[in-house]
Design a protein around this nucleic acid. Structure first.
Length: 478
DNA sequence: GCATGATCATGC
DNA sequence: GCATGATCATGC
């Protein structure tokens, strides 16, 4: 054991294992190389070693296993063996290595391709620990991010090119929000609700499922219900903003760090409680009133002049305006982006666009209510994500029925006014969601799997369901 | 008054 | 020109 360690130590003259900055400096040698090049360079290096040393290098060449790209960097570039899971990879420096893909969007901007999975959540241990001294922060506080450019056309993982390597540690307001997310996740486990966790329940740090398949379950300390295994992960949306250093988003929280981020937001909104839309426009000096004025006002109240905030972008938080009528109903159901029929039928529920969207998205409702004169007045706001049971039962049932119908060929007919009708799931069939057209007009169509054309559709959340999810205070008349 | 098909309006 | 958020309009 000590001999092996000694050999490794002597082989490692390339960088100072105890100095994060030196590790980062050495890591620049990865930039602009493909994984294959790194591997080949190291093969040449090993050939020069004594036989005794060669034996310690495991050849990593499995092209399919994504985890192996990280392993390849560990062994073939940093020349250490993956260590015990409870410590950072570079233990003496306290730095954890993460190798992850990003992509370039059509508009030229960069996005993280995936969430950044940090470490498994041990449901039994995490409830005994606190943030500062616990396993998660001890292991993952300082990251060395190695990002490679993902491209659709590249077939073999080894051919991806590494584009940057840099140290990363969340600080300031980011760290505060991560602490609050962590507390929220641990609190759910303490309440015996590990099975109700989803990524949408938190802002930057999520609890993401991690199992060989969707049927894997494990025990939790405060409930007999088995839960999916989960890991701590920075959300994809958070990593996207981290990647793009020159952010075009405006932060809601300026300078000082606020505790209870959501409470802070609610407080800001509540200052304008009771204001009508017109009064808000006057107060905030907005002259034009576009159709999305109600949600736009939410941003202006938060002091944001654009239509996206840094915190909301990082947290994958979607702002939705909600209008409650005098009779305590919501007039409209909530629409989502259109889907392509042919893409939908090729999805599995477990990895479906809409299912994932609901799991990962956190909503920020800006809530207005009509007064007795029919004037909409701001009532407050609410953060919300869809409960897991509603996604897995109601939405899933509607989604799967839709896919079956599309595969079998939906029924289509026109009424005497020429309007289209089909047997796709309607609102009355499902408590939570339904399908409706979402197109420019009836001629704005998409091709069905059987080749017929039909107006573009999307999933909707029932207005009655959304109302049921609002806090009681918004439903009362005072 | 609601359900459902249809369409508007903004922003990129 | 299209995606997206939002809302209109008709018929039951």
């Amino acid at each position: 054991m000590f001999l092996v360690l000694f050999i490794y130590m002597t082989a490692k003259t390339e960088y100072d294992v105890s100095d994060p900055l030196d590790i980062e400096r050495y890591a620049q040698g990865l930039v602009d190389k493909t994984f294959r090049q790194i591997w080949e360079l190291d093969v040449k290096r090993i050939q020069l070693l004594a036989e005794e040393q060669k034996a310690h290098y495991v050849v990593v060449d499995n092209k399919r296993n994504k985890g192996n790209l990280g392993q390849l960097i560990e062994e073939r570039f940093f020349h250490y063996k993956p260590n015990s899971k409870n410590k950072p990879d570079f233990e003496e420096a306290g730095v954890e290595l993460k190798v992850s893909p990003y992509k370039i969007n059509k508009d030229g901007t960069k996005s993280a391709k995936e969430r950044l999975v940090l470490t498994m959540i041990d449901y039994y241990k995490v409830v005994e620990e606190n943030f500062d001294t616990g396993h998660f922060w001890n292991k993952c506080r300082h990251l060395l991010l190695v990002y490679y450019l993902w491209k659709q056309e590249i077939q073999e993982n080894l051919d991806y090119q590494i584009k940057f390597a840099r140290l990363f540690e969340p600080k300031g307001q980011d760290l505060q929000i991560i602490r609050e997310d962590y507390a929220k996740i641990v609190s759910a486990i303490r309440q015996g609700k590990a099975h109700e966790l989803s990524e949408g329940s938190t802002t930057y740090l999520g609890a993401v499922t991690k199992g060989a398949n969707s049927s894997v379950r494990r025990g939790q300390p405060f409930s007999d219900i088995e839960a999916k295994p989960r890991a701590f992960a920075y959300k994809q949306s958070y990593m996207t903003v981290v990647l793009n250093r020159k952010s075009t988003y405006e932060p809601i929280v300026q300078q000082s760090v606020v505790e209870d981020f959501e409470g802070f937001i609610a407080q800001k909104i509540n200052r304008y409680k009771g204001y009508s839309i017109d009064e808000l426009c006057d107060e905030l000096n907005i002259s034009s009133k576009p159709k999305n004025i109600a949600s736009l006002l939410g941003f202006r109240i938060l002091g944001i002049t654009k239509n996206q905030t840094e915190e909301f972008a990082k947290g994958n938080i979607i702002v939705k305006a909600i209008r409650i009528s005098q009779n305590n109903t919501i007039k409209e159901s909530m629409s989502f982006p259109t889907f392509k029929f042919k893409e939908l039928v090729n999805e599995e529920w477990e990895d479906s666009t809409f299912g994932n969207y609901l799991y990962e998205t956190r909503f920020f409702f800006v809530i207005y209510k009509e007064d007795s004169n029919g004037v909409l007045r701001l009532r407050g706001c609410q953060f919300w994500n869809m409960p897991v049971s509603d996604i897995e039962n109601d939405v899933r049932q509607m989604w799967e029925r839709t896919v079956v119908l599309l595969k079998d060929g939906i029924q289509i007919w026109k009424d005497d006014k020429g309007r289209n009708h089909s047997n796709l799931p309607q609102k009355k069939e499902n408590r939570v969601s339904h399908i409706r057209p979402h197109a420019r007009d009836a001629n704005d169509t998409d091709e069905l799997p059987d080749g017929r054309k039909y107006p573009k559709q999307c999933f909707w959340l029932n207005n009655t369901y959304i109302l049921s999810q609002l806090d009681e205070e918004f439903k009362s008349n005072r």
